[in-house]
Amino acid sequence: MSHHTIEVADLSFTYPDGHQALNKVTLGVEPNEKAALVGPNGSGKSTLLLHLNGVLRSHEGSVCVGGLPLNDDNLGQIRAWVGLVFQNPDDQLFSPRVYQDVAFGPLHMGLDEKTIEARVSAALEAVGMGGYAQRTSYHLSLGEKKRIAIASVLSMEPKILVLDEPSAGLDPRARRNLIRLLQSLEYQTMLISTHDMRLVAELCSRTIVLDSGSVVANGPTADILYDAVLMERHGLETP
């Protein structure tokens, strides 16, 4: 892959119960750019992110990742490129032990054992969970689960990171470390959905505002985040 971009064009999505969650969403994220996706509860942020590695699929509009259109042929490749961290860590962890969960992605990609071990311990270290490899996933605290969920994606070394509220539920130190960690990943494209405006201010060069399933603003963070009227109108606040 020469350029790891995200391009979404005219994407609409309706849940099976008839609720339309996305309405003609168009947005793009440049290579190595870190973009924030903000908007009130229920505006469709999670729904949009779930489209970026094909967990949800829509027939209206298109999703292109790294220049490839998302379809059955490219699905495996796109899932190797895009690391998706779900909003709810219980949606992410499915193995009995932390180690197995973090090793799943690399194992599935067919990497060799040495590499996998190195990646797993690096990923766990990166989120400050070095000693947790042999713990059972389902009895961890919420913040611990969230950090393991992030590690389970970092171990795949994805070119594109899609994070759904990565800082929710983290204690101040873990949150600080997370921001630092994400800042250090210079060569990864990121799209981060969040309600944490300080994280946006520190990390993201661009901010996209979603409301009622549509993009209502898209521009440099400095312009959008400090536009008190705009933020107020969409149920948000300036940091």
């Binding site: 590695n53 967990v55 495996g76 490749q77 796109i78 899932r79 190797a80 490129w81 690391g83 998706l84 779900f86 949606d91 992410q92 962890l93 499915f94 193995s95 009995p96 197995q100 799943f104 992605g105 194992l107 599935h108 990609m109 067919g110 990497l111 389970s152 994606v153 795949m156 994805p158």
Partner: peptide
């Protein structure tokens, strides 16, 4: 199932998906 699928990436030119035995183990654990 969604969690597993979301991280089931494949690399071009690389045998992926793991062995049958490993996949069975993952399914059993699930």
């Amino acid at each position: 199932i969604r969690a597993r699928d979301s991280r089931s990436g494949t690399l071009p030119g690389q045998k992926s998906g793991g062995s049958l035995w490993w996949r069975a183990q993952v399914a059993g654990a699930m």
